[in-house]
Amino acid sequence: MKRLVRAQAFGRADILSDLRFHGRKAVDHLAKVYLYPDHTARNHWKEEVLAHFSSVSTLKGTNRFPKLKDIYYNGCEGHLDTLSKTVRVFRKEYGEPTRKCKLQTLQMAVQDYFWWASKELNKSGRLIGSEAYQMMDSVESKYFGDE
């Protein structure tokens, strides 16, 4: 008896919807990592970024990953316009951020990390945890290292 094994693939709309849903959570957690560098939950927040934005499924019928711009926009760019409101919520939950920075700097740092992550997901469909954590730290040093 022969068995046909097929990989799980999803439609484009389903994949992009999933990226939007998980991207929002990943953006929020990454912003907390950068705004509260001394918080006891910092490592947990880094794990949450990776948990919500570390893999992408192949497209049904093509066996390819979504386009880079689709991964990036739905995972990150579409959420940046609400980041100022999100920071206000963080202030109520965690107090004033221990790192003072302009909203624009925070947005650029988040964009930088997600651009890298989106390129990796577009190539291989999965992020390697150690590389993702290293990139979070690298981006943090780039934008906030001398503050």
Rank of each mutant, 00 (worst) to 15 (best):
L68N: 07
S130W: 09
I128Y: 13
Y113D: 05
L16N: 04
Y72D: 00
F90P: 14
Q8C: 02
Y133T: 10
Y72G: 01
N122H: 09
Y94K: 09
L106T: 00
G95E: 06
P97Q: 08
D81V: 08
R99D: 03
I128L: 09
A7N: 14
N74R: 05
G145K: 01
K25D: 09
L30H: 04
I128A: 09
V87Q: 02
I128T: 08
Q111C: 06
R12S: 08
F65A: 03
N122E: 05
K32E: 10
L30C: 04
F90I: 06
S124D: 04
L80A: 03
R99N: 03
L59S: 05
H29N: 15
E48I: 03
K46N: 02
Q107D: 03
P37I: 07
G61W: 10
A51Y: 08
E96K: 13
V33Q: 02
H52D: 14
K100Q: 13
R6G: 03
L50F: 15
W115E: 07
C76G: 03
L35E: 02
S130Q: 12
E93T: 10
A13H: 13
L4Q: 14
Q111S: 11
T86N: 07
S138Y: 09
W115Q: 09
G61R: 04
Q134G: 09
A132S: 11
A31S: 13
Y133G: 06
T86W: 08
E131Q: 13
E140M: 05
P37T: 09
E120N: 02
F114I: 04
W115V: 08
E140C: 08
H52W: 10
S130A: 14
V110A: 03
H44Y: 15
H79L: 00
G78R: 09
N122D: 01
K25W: 14
L16T: 06
R12P: 00
H22K: 15
R88N: 13
S130G: 10
Q111V: 02
S130E: 14
Y34M: 04
K123L: 06
E140G: 10
S138K: 08
L19F: 02
V89Q: 13
D38H: 15
C76I: 00
S57I: 07
R88K: 14
Q8V: 13
D38A: 15
H79V: 07
Y94A: 08
V5R: 12
S141H: 11
G23R: 00
Y113W: 12
